[in-house]
Design a protein around this nucleic acid. Structure first.
Length: 256
DNA sequence: CGTATATGGATAC
DNA sequence: TATCCCTATACGT
């Protein structure tokens, strides 16, 4: 399920699966039939991840844009009748169910979407300065800013909770109250966490070795996200509705 | 069987 | 701020 690490991992996996020859396209569920017909038999040139967006760039300048939203999920060699679009090359099939967005456009459409996104910590062109300058001059709560994709692209509810926890920053602190150095460090933490997420293909923000276990046997993968007690100090975790999303904080480790 | 929940976002007031 | 969209899964009855 999708924060930026999922999207970048999918781009990598789908590049290996789908590039290099003609691709069959269809829409089992039917809502993307016209688009699939246009793509069927075409060749993919590049699959790009930017924040939580996936762009499948075809040789004829068509771009398939997929955003998984909250419910979207890809399936590999696991056919589902509810798939919006199914792409096959050779004996590999990937298909997506429940995407928020699945649409066909051009590279200009792709550019317009990217233009409204902030820097992506997983991309080589993701510049920390852009994030720091923007976040530092806004009085908005840092917890709200981290979920704003125009401030930083690819962070979701889990990484928000975990990165702020690691830095002892309460989600309600205004951006203006946080030093530039601290925001730079926060960016680095997000980048490290997201990269680890790409490797694991899941979110693990704690160190399994410190917990005396292995990544595979890990029973608890987060410090505070969806936890009753803080993993560091045992204090009951605060959870409240912040603009429609659950926010988490340890009242002891993250003083306001 | 129903109901609640989920790592997201666009759009209408 | 409220409403809607998208799907799968867990859990209670």
């Amino acid at each position: 399920m999708p924060e930026g690490h999922t999207i970048h991992r999918l781009a990598r996996d789908h590049t290996a699966d789908l590039l290099g020859g003609p691709v069959r396209a269809s829409s089992p569920q039917g809502r993307f039939e016209a688009g699939a017909a246009l793509l069927d038999g075409g060749t993919l040139e590049r699959i790009e991840a930017y924040g939580k967006h996936l762009f499948y760039r075809w040789s004829d300048d068509r771009v398939l844009h997929i955003h998984l939203g909250l419910f979207g999920k890809f399936h590999r060699n696991d056919p589902r009748p509810t798939s919006r679009v199914r792409l096959s090359r050779g004996d590999v099939t990937v298909e997506v169910t429940g995407p928020t967005d699945c649409s066909l456009g051009t590279s200009a459409d792709r550019d317009r979407i990217v233009a409204r996104l902030g820097p992506d910590p997983l991309r080589r062109d993701g510049r920390a300065e852009r994030f720091v300058e923007r976040a530092a001059r806004s009085r908005r709560a840092i917890g709200l800013q981290l979920l704003d994709q125009s401030v930083v692209a690819g962070v979701g509810n889990v990484y928000r909770a975990e990165a702020l926890f690691v830095h002892g920053i309460h989600p309600l602190r205004p951006g203006t109250s946080i030093a530039d150095d601290e925001l730079s460090a926060l960016w680095e933490t997000l980048r490290t966490m997201l990269r680890q997420g790409v490797r694991d293909n899941r979110i693990i923000t704690v160190d399994p070795a410190v917990l005396g276990t292995t990544r595979r046997r890990l029973r608890r993968a987060t410090w505070i996200y969806r936890q009753d007690q803080c993993l560091r100090c045992g204090t009951p975790v605060d959870r409240w509705d912040l603009s429609g999303r659950w926010a988490y904080a340890c009242p002891r480790c993250q003083p306001t």
